[in-house]
Nucleic acid binder design. Structure first.
Lengths: 240, 240
DNA sequence: TCAAAAGTGTTTAGTCTACACCCATGA
DNA sequence: TCATGGGTGTAGACTAAACACTTTTGA
C-alpha cells in the first residue's frame, strides 16, 4: 500500500525507492475456523490499511514483496503469489498520507512523491497463523488479524484488493495445492475440510473430500492420534 | 516494453509519463492455422521487441494498455487481460534503448529515465487477425506477425513474457470463453477446434469437441453453408 | 451402552472416451 | 459411386454424488 515507510524510509527525498509504485500484501491466516487477514491501524485512529511497502531501486519486485510480508509477520519462508496490479489513476487519495506525514513531523509539499499517484502490485501471502508475530511499523502502531466478515473500513481501494485476492485464492485452491500453507504442520482431515469450506464459502461432502485429498497422495498419515471428544480419534496428517 | 515512445513521447524530460513503469503487450492473432504474435522490429536491424508503452501520469493502467494495443493494431474494442508483472531488478538492459535514442538524435545522460530500471505490466490481447492493420511507430519501423514457432530473438525478457502470456491464455481457455476473440465473425467448428488444438498444443477428439462447445450454448448456427472440397459442407457459426 | 464424529463401502447418476455410423459434396 | 470430411449415435469406462454402514471414543 502507499504510505508505510519503515525504518529510515520516510526520508523526504525517498531516493531509495522507486516512485509511483507500491506493493500491497493481503496476508491470509486461518484461526478459529475463520479466514483472517492482517491489517495495519494508524495511531488509535480508525484508519486501517493493508500491509504494504515500496520497492528499493535495486530490488527485485518479488523480493520486495517477501520483505514486506516478512517485516509484518516475522516469518522467513512465505508462500506468496502476485495476483493483480491496481492502476486506476484515481485510486490514490493523498490526504491520509499527508495526515500521517504531518503527524511524523514532515511537512510535505504538494509534489512530494508519497502524495503522488501510486500503482500498486497486489500479492497475497498464505501463512501459518500460529507462527506469526504481528509487528507494527513506525507509522502504523496497530497490526492485527481481522476475520474476513469483520473487516473495518479500509483506506482507498484496499477492500477491493482483498476481494480480488480472495477470488484469486479460490481460483488457485484446486490447481495449486495452496491450502496447506494455511495449516499448522499437523492437522486433521476435518480441519482441512473446514478451511476449504471457508475459502470456497460452501459446504463439502465429507466422504468425497477425504477421498479427493487422499488421492492426491500428498499427505502423510501420522501414527499418533488425537485426544478430544467422545468419538473416534481422527488421524493427524502432515504435508509431505 | 521499455523503449517505445510514440508521437511526442520521446521528449527527453518525459514529464508526461510515470517513470520506471511500462506496459508490454502480447498481441495474439490466429492465421494459417497458427497462433501468431505482433512484434516490433527496429530499423532493419535485428532488434525485435514486444509492442509496449508507458503510462500517462493521469491515465488508468488499463486505459494505457488499450491505447498501446490500439495504436499498433488500429482496433477499437480489444479483449485485453492483465497477466503478470515483470519486476526483476536486472531485466532492463539500457543499451538497446541508448542505441535507439542516439539514432533519434537524443544524447541521453546516464540518468535519463528511459535508461533506468523498468517494471513492466504484461497484458495479452486477443484480436481478429483479419481486422488488424499492423502499425509501426516512430521508433520501430517494423510491425509484423510472427508464428510462435518462428519468433526471432527478442529484447530483454520478452521471450519469457510471451511464454507466460501463452500459459495464462491456456489456463483461461476453458474458464473464460476467450478463444472467440481470436476468430473472425463466422467460422466453422473445425476452425475453432484447430485454434483450441493450437493453443493447447494437443489433439482433441472431434465429436467431444463439437458437443462440448455446443453445450455451452454460446454459438449460433448460421443457415448459410460453406462451399469447399469434396465433402459435406460444414455449418458456419457465430458467437452470440 | 449411547451419542458423536471418523473412516470406509456401495449404489447410482452423470460425464467423458472412443469408435461407429450416416450424411452431404465434388470429382 | 467413391473418397473425404462433417455431424450424430452409442457402448463402455471413468468419475462424482449421495447415502449407508462400521469403528472408535468419552461420558
Amino acid at each position: 500500500m502507499e504510505g508505510r515507510p519503515t525504518q529510515n524510509e520516510s526520508d523526504a527525498a525517498g531516493s531509495n525507492y522507486m516512485h509511483g509504485l507500491a506493493i500491497d500484501a493481503v496476508i491470509f491466516g486461518f484461526h478459529d475456523n475463520q479466514l483472517k487477514v492482517l491489517l495495519m491501524q494508524y495511531k488509535k485512529s480508525d484508519i486501517f490499511a493493508l500491509p504494504g511497502g515500496f520497492i528499493h531501486k535495486e530490488e527485485n519486485l518479488d523480493d520486495a514483496a517477501h520483505r514486506v510480508v516478512s517485516e509484518r509477520t516475522g516469518l522467513k519462508d512465505i508462500y506468496l503469489e502476485q495476483f493483480y496490479v491496481f492502476g486506476d489513476a484515481t485510486r490514490s487519495d493523498p490526504s491520509p498520507m499527508r495526515t500521517i506525514m504531518l503527524a511524523n513531523g514532515i511537512a510535505p509539499g504538494n509534489h512530494h512523491w508519497l502524495l503522488q499517484r501510486f500503482i500498486s502490485v497486489g500479492y497475497y501471502a498464505l501463512v501459518d497463523f500460529t507462527k506469526v508475530t504481528p509487528m507494527p511499523d513506525r507509522i502504523f502502531d496497530g497490526c492485527n488479524w481481522y476475520a474476513l466478515a469483520d473487516i473495518p473500513p479500509l483506506m482507498q481501494d484496499h477492500a477491493q484488493i482483498i476481494k480480488k485476492a480472495l477470488a484469486s485464492l479460490r481460483a488457485n485452491l484446486d490447481n495449486k495445492l495452496v491450502a496447506f500453507n494455511l495449516m499448522p504442520e499437523e492437522f486433521t482431515m476435518n480441519d482441512l475440510q473446514i478451511l476449504y469450506e471457508t475459502i470456497l464459502d460452501k459446504k463439502l461432502l465429507r466422504p468425497a473430500f477425504q477421498r479427493k485429498i487422499l488421492s492426491l497422495g500428498i499427505l502423510e498419515r501420522i501414527a499418533k492420534k488425537w485426544t478430544g471428544g467422545a468419538h473416534k480419534a481422527p488421524y493427524l496428517y502432515r504435508f509431505k
